[in-house]
Design a protein around this nucleic acid. Sequence first.
DNA 1: AATGGTTCAGTTTTT
DNA 2: CTGAACCATT
Length: 732
Amino acid sequence: MQDQLEQLNPQQRAAVEAVDGPVLVVAGAGSGKTKVITTRIMYLIHKGVSPYQILAMTFTNKAAQEMRERIERAVGSDARDLTITTFHSFCAMFLRREIGYLDRDSNFVIYDTSDQTSCLKRVIRNMDLEEKNYPAQRLRSRISYLKNAGDLGGELNNPVEQLIYKNYQEELLAQNALDFDDLLHLTCQILERWGEVQQRYRHRFEYIMVDEYQDTNQIQSKLINLLLNEQHNLCVVGDEDQSIYGWRGADITNILHFDKNFRNTRVFKLEQNYRSTQSILDYANAVINKNKLRKPKKLWTAAGEGLPIIIKDEYTASIEAENIIQQIRSLSRNNNLAYNQFAILFRSNALSRVLEETARRYRIPYQLIGGLKFYDRKEIKDLLSYMRIVVNPRDWTSFVRALGVPTRGIGAKSQDKLYSYFEEGSPIPDVMARAIKDKRLSGKGMKGLKEFQILYRDLVASAETDKPSEWLKKLVDRLDYQAYLEKLDITTTDSRLDNLQELMTGMLEQEAQGVTTLSQFMDFSALVSDQDDLNPDEPRVNMMTVHAAKGLEFDTVFVVGLEDGVFPNQRALDDNPNAVEEERRLFYVAVTRAKQRLFLSYARSRQTYGKTVRNIKSRFLLPPKTGADSGPLPEKPRKPSPWGDSATQQKRLTLQMERLGVDARQIKKTFGKSEDGDELHLEPGDRVEHASFGEGTVSVVMGQGAQRKVSVRFPGKGIRTLLVIKAGLKKL
DNA sequence: AATGGTTCAGTTTTT
DNA sequence: CTGAACCATT
């Protein structure tokens, strides 16, 4: 333990050792925040606190997993009893145990954003309202905002909307479903109303820590208060300058007023930055200094001045993109930087198009992070909808979806008829039985419904005996889902089938971790994001929104589209000064992602929604220290082939061939036997070594030959799925 | 009921 | 430029 403490700087160490009472750690960007939290937890364990009594809340699964693994590496199996989870997972687990207090069934399903929208549409349809006057998506986000801001239902504009809201909640109840926000609300409700439950949890968790506290909203802060006992052993870590989720109900005053809300708060400021050069930090400090809603803080580094920041004024967005891609190409060559050391950040996803096109044209590999989420994809949602009605026979939203995949001759009118049975309180199996008995549907629809009924029975039976992965395989076969996808759109079938394979892999991985029921898998799929899917070892340029980049770092960062109306966006400019401050914090987050090089650019004109728009440069841009806008960096003399040995060369060629769509067998032929993934015999449980991840344990093996893939659990890096021929694994 | 063509509105998203 | 929503066919 002494070792761990000595690795910390004085402020970090003080924050770690201050274990009792309320503690606020103001952790600037790149100041070693995760290290402080994990060391603090180890320190608590070292001092004799039972891991069972420690709770750490994060916002993402990725953060939670990372912390758990860091601690596991240091303290071993003691880490198992720690509760390190996201707010939503914590509440889901809590409610599976305790929702009975509210007279509700613990088999509830969790509705994601698109389920919520479908459910709202059902409600609006039931109310005989014009759907175009009440756009379900807009209402969904308003309702969600109000729930998060702790302003339950009171602030909707008009009586009709309030009624929609009321009916929506009733519909969720009838479907035995909770939306993301309800997870938190119902948890708080139970803790508030039942003292004995609250006592149980308050005594269980003696020490509570909250990560990214600047992003908590009212309901989350309320939850923490409900869990906290009279000792007030609460440590929150965050940075008000990185609060960028206000539009979702996050309340920056939670962190700004923390020391007022808790008397005797000890405050520790982490201002030493271990990520960026001094020029980057100076720029970042100057940017954020313009904000009023903050407490003074100044990042510094021992790393030295570094390269100047470069600001570029471009005529058009395509020229901007072109210059960036060329810059990446030459930096990569001259400084021997792999493509994944670069990131291009933008304010909104719409800006990514021109960058993608340019990267493709120059054959620079890239990966776009964010966009459509894995579990939001049609093919995934289709199959999950079957899974969900098996687990929860009241999930009408999923039932309707499943009925339409593949099409069974049951359209809106028939759905309405079926719904009338559901409204009377029948669960889905009864709805089907009654509709068939009463002959409520005509010809085609009746046939479809009968087939569905049999399928449903079989799926329920299969769920009781089979492992989730076997269950899924049966489902795909029974639906002849591949044929359905081909008929739907042959051009997308391949990628959709890949996604199905991915779903299968995810399921096998979960099974390897002890998941045995569909219900457990469903919670997992509802509560993960695919931020975890960011593949840092692939040598590809990263493109993402600034929101998606939070918490990440890259050697070289390009921030594009720095124009008034784009970044800051128009909405913020039309709104109040606080909105512009949030945009500025977003810009601050963007620039603090860079370790060595930072390029900022704006274009005088850009295509928006297919129209050419002229913009002026962003009010956020400050002149760089060196004065005038600089040109490209002076190029270093070219080094001889930076790509090293022939094995690396071969890997690169393989990658390139794959990108060009060369058949796997052909690749195998080109490189001979050595590229056969079967050569290296691996099975679950094997220990392997990877060049950048280090040692890990194989959890799943799938596919054959050149396509053979393995999932490996690397402590500290999570589970990675790797192609055997590409990964260069060494068996230990 | 399903399909194909038209019009129309639109940023950011940890769960 | 994109998807969602709407409308007119079969």
